[in-house]
């Protein structure tokens, strides 16, 4: 990012815009029918790993971590890119959105990734999206990193060309691209190499827990981006609190380190749903 303002979110805290701001959809990039990137006007800055609440009037409002943010935001010329996958009513309605339409966004919410030299980025599925923004930020700060990215199939593997120009290895469950099998399979070997001083991960919770375990084995600090059901986004409603310490994923998270995860007892359990109940039907 060579735009005028350098990392506006480092140092002075950025004011959070808590009521939705109407923004134009500038562009829609189609990865496939159910996986698209929406390029939005940026009325505020968002750090890698932080999230916004995206409002489709008449539908609902849901949390998303941008896959890229360009930072000429003070001139209102910045862009927030959100990459989303159709999984339910909201994201299906989002897939139907076209350039020129207006949506509402508020944020930036929560704590993002801190930029560390010699980071290993581990991404699974949609988790690759926020890591792309993190990688971009590391790049523009001259901080070296490597990425290990996995998905179910080649079609679900996001930003392959973009990451290939940097330093990345790819994994798919069905072997349709890169190495066959889980992205975490060679994590121990990579961490053993001693070339990494930090690990940043985003993806399904079992993947995050595998990363956590490997990092603990090799005594490497980790930053893991979690998802929980969110309603207010501002740390009030209690919906996204984790059992154990009650930390709010929308406020203390979504990126959590060993320090914040200490005492949390619900990792790997089915998530609480919109009612607040934790059930076997819950999503993990």
């Amino acid at each position: 990012m060579t735009d005028g303002i350098h990392s506006p979110f480092e140092g002075t805290p950025v004011a959070v815009v808590t009521s939705p701001v109407p923004v134009r959809i500038e562009d829609v990039i189609v990865h496939h029918e159910a996986l698209k990137t929406f390029v939005l006007e940026a009325p505020f800055p968002v750090a890698p790993g932080q999230f916004i609440m995206l409002w489709l009037p008449g539908v609902d409002e849901k949390p998303f971590s941008p896959s890229l943010v360009t930072q000429r935001w003070r001139l209102r010329a910045g862009r927030i890119e959100v990459t989303a996958r159709a999984v339910g009513p909201f994201t299906r309605a989002l897939m139907a959105c076209r350039p020129g339409q207006t949506v509402g966004i508020r944020g930036p919410f929560g704590q993002g990734f801190s930029l560390e030299p010699c980071s290993l980025l581990v991404g699974g599925g949609m988790g690759i999206a926020p890591l792309r923004y993190l990688a971009d930020a590391l790049d523009s700060n001259g901080l070296p990193f490597q990425a290990m990215l996995g998905a179910r199939t080649a079609a679900d593997l996001l930003f392959v060309d973009w990451f290939q120009r940097r330093s990345a290895s790819f994994y798919t469950d069905d072997g349709s691209a890169g190495v066959s099998g889980p992205v975490t399979q060679s994590l121990d070997v990579e961490l053993e190499s001693g070339q990494f001083r930090a690990v940043c991960a985003c993806g399904p919770e079992p993947m995050l827990l595998a990363v956590k375990k490997a990092c603990e084995t090799h005594s490497i600090p980790y930053q893991l981006a979690f998802e929980r059901y969110m309603k207010c986004g501002i740390g009030l409603c209690g919906q996204c609190c984790m059992d154990g310490t009650g930390i709010r994923v929308c406020k203390e998270g979504p990126v959590l380190t060993a320090r914040e995860l200490a005492g949390v007892t619900e990792l790997g359990l089915p998530h609480r749903d919109a009612t607040g109940a934790r059930g076997p039907s819950g999503h993990i």
Partner: peptide
């Protein structure tokens, strides 16, 4: 009521 108190742990945050 309605602030944080969804679970034992989230209400526990208010104790802290």
């Amino acid at each position: 009521s309605g602030i944080l108190g969804m679970s034992a742990s989230s209400a526990g945050l208010a104790v802290a």
